[in-house]
Design a protein around this nucleic acid. Structure first.
Length: 637
DNA sequence: TTAGGGTTAG
């Protein structure tokens, strides 16, 4: 090559490259130097200039070009110029395995599955043999269907024992729920399975909710092998599949072992477990632990804290974390809006919604609207809620989902606009589910429209669109009008179809331990003291004029028997236990898995007045704050 | 190059 060739030109400082032009007399640095510049490029401008220079100087004919091209690809990708990085492949004559693999990997990691597959097929038709990097890259784009094909390629090219490829296969099979194939691949892996492949298999069980299989695999891993990722997967598996107490127990085990050190993901998983059971004390303890142990407090940890404090009944602490969170993203805003909504602070939720858009400039998502619509529903802001619902599509281009319709139906139903709510359910594009029907049925009961209630319930039962809630509500409706024949009919129907009413469970956390109560429960160690307090409570409230609301009792019992059954509702047992085990004047926080019944609601108001305690009660739908004889829900829930 | 996380109706 002649000495004047740009390829052999002397090196050029980076800033001069930006002003260089062939006419300007500058010389292009050698390709090796360009490669270094690309690796270090801080702006996409420089990448584009180098790209232009490569083309202008015919560098694509240079033997070093494949390496340069690969660097160019990575540089574009690292600046999020995915299209630029992928288009390199089209402008390259005879792209090699490395460029193909890099492009497939870039497409896969950026969710461009179809393109990844097109590139993979193009590679095969160019008669290039893929390697383990290529296959692990294409595996990231596989679906449950395409994985079979790629698996045959893995075998054909003899890559089945490569840990990366095998882990990729386990991962894809797991995603499609094919536990058997995932396990087969896993079991065939070489003797010393890597911690990563074990964790991939563990994740597979976790995603399927098979916590027992997950725990068995977790136990089979040597202590020395378990790193924080595997602990996190196991803790989260419990938390996400209905075993939040087990998640917290395992977390305590991790702390007791002393290693590995929990990280921010452990924090999120355990906080979520606390949210589910309303374990405020445990949640606070984890918060302190986070601050003391130097865990990186990112926005996800903050959101988990906001959610935990909201769901555990301490809105004040949720707000405090929210205010201290820097760089709040939409998820953090959504969590805070939902927090305000579930506590009945509707105006605050709506104010935040405005602030988020106006001051911060964040666009709401469909989840934001679940929060704001719920806020409207809980405060009876009918017009505002309807406007909000309409604005979703008209202003924000967001298609309402069943959850949004659910909020709207609840909003209208609560306001007594039953016919309108009924029409919405009948006319919506999405098929109604039992949740939305139950909501309307509940409203029918609330407003005493037994005619419509019966019509709907019988329609649902006739079409088998039911859950235990629908039956219970229908039975309730019959009971409210004293139609015990109807009640009996529903009960025998439930028996016939083996529908079991979900048992009501109330919980209260005392000294970091969660205590569970079911109606009439005698299992607690301090049962005797609890029942003494229950009877004391009955005397207090009766002397303040309480009359039991026996209508809420479904069974066909004598009046006195109905009163007795009300007296031992799970909420009342939990309150009694709270009263005997905490200091006078301190607030009580009770959690109920179902909706609080209207009789317990009345009783709790009275107890709050008589004892001077603030009682915070979370039920299936929302929070009730009982203070001095009244409730934040305004007796309308 | 391979594994793990936060918000969602009643």
């Amino acid at each position: 090559m002649p000495a004047s060739s740009p390829i052999l030109a002397t090196s050029l400082p980076q800033k001069q490259l930006t002003t260089s032009s062939p006419a300007g007399g500058f010389r292009l640095p050698p390709p090796e130097k360009l490669a270094i510049l690309l690796d270090r490029s801080e702006s996409v401008d420089l990448v584009q200039q180098i790209h232009a220079a490569i083309l202008r100087h015919n560098l694509y004919l240079h033997p070093y070009h494949p390496v340069l091209n690969l660097k160019l690809h990575r540089a574009y990708a690292s600046h999020d110029k995915i299209r630029h990085s992928l288009s390199l492949l089209h402008t390259t004559i005879d792209p090699d395995l490395f460029l193909f693999t890099a492009a497939i990997n870039t497409a896969s990691t950026n969710g461009l599955r179809d393109q990844a597959f097109r590139l993979y097929l193009q590679l095969l038709s160019s008669r290039i043999v893929p390697n383990e990097f290529t296959l692990s890259s294409i595996l990231k784009s596989c679906s449950a269907r395409s994985v079979k094909l790629i698996h045959t390629h893995v075998i054909k090219f003899g890559l089945g024992l490569d840990p990366y490829v095998a882990t990729g296969l386990v991962d894809v099979y797991a995603l499609g729920g094919d536990l058997v194939s995932a396990r087969k691949v896993f079991d065939r892996m070489p003797e010393r399975r890597s911690i990563v492949s074990c964790t991939a298999m563990l994740t597979c069980y976790a995603k399927q909710g098979d916590v027992e299989a997950a725990r068995a695999l977790f136990e089979s891993m040597l202590d020395s092998d378990r790193d924080i990722v595997s602990w996190n997967v196991m803790i989260d598996a419990y938390g996400q599949h209905g075993f939040p107490s087990e998640a917290l127990m395992l977390f305590r085990e991790l702390l007791a072992e002393g290693k590995p050190k929990p990280d921010e993901i452990t924090a999120v998983a355990t906080l979520s477990a606390c949210s589910q059971i309303g374990a405020l004390e445990s949640g606070r303890w984890i918060h302190v632990l986070i601050e003391r142990s130097g865990i990186r407090v990112n926005v996800k940890v903050c959101t988990a804290l906001i959610d935990m404090y909201s769901k555990c009944g301490s809105l004040e602490e949720a707000v405090s974390v929210f205010n201290d969170t820097t760089r709040k993203d939409i998820v953090a805003w959504n969590a805070m809006i939902a927090g305000y909504a579930m506590h009945g602070y509707s105006q605050e939720a709506l104010r935040l919604f405005d602030e988020m858009q106006g001051t911060v400039g964040l666009q709401p998502t469909d989840i934001t609207f679940i929060g704001t619509l719920q806020a409207c529903a809980h405060a009876g802001l009918v017009e505002e809620g309807v406007r909000m619902f309409e604005s979703m599509g008209q202003v924000y281009g967001i298609k309402p989902k069943i959850e949004h319709y659910g909020c709207l139906v609840s909003l209208l139903g609560r306001a007594g606009r039953l016919k309108q709510a009924y029409e919405i359910i009948k006319n919506m594009e999405i098929e109604a589910d039992s949740v939305i029907w139950s909501s309307l049925l509940g409203s029918c009961k609330l407003h005493g429209d037994f005619g419509l209630g019966k019509e709907i319930a019988e329609y649902l039962i006739g079409r088998n669109i039911t859950n235990s809630g629908t039956y219970v509500l229908l039975s309730n409706i019959y009971a409210s009008v004293g139609d015990y024949e109807g009640v009996a009919k529903v009960r025998s129907l439930m028996k016939e179809k083996t529908i079991v009413k979900e048992p009501g469970v109330s919980t209260i956390e005392i000294d970091g331990r969660v205590h569970e109560f079911r109606a009439g429960d005698g299992n607690h160690l301090q049962s005797e003291e609890i029942y003494t307090m229950v009877r004391k409570m009955s005397e207090w409230i009766k002397s303040s004029g309480y009359v039991p609301d026996t209508n809420v009792v479904l069974q066909d019992l004598e009046k006195s028997e109905k009163e007795e059954s009300l007296e031992v509702h799970s909420e009342r047992l939990a309150i009694a236990y709270g009263l005997i085990s905490t200091k006078p004047g301190s607030p009580l926080r009770i959690f109920k898995n179902l909706r609080v019944c209207s009789d317990c609601h009345t009783v709790t108001k009275l107890i709050s007045k008589i004892t001077g305690r603030k009682i915070v009660m979370r039920d299936r739908n929302r929070f009730h704050h009982f203070v001095d004889g009244s409730c934040s829900c305004g007796d309308f829930w």
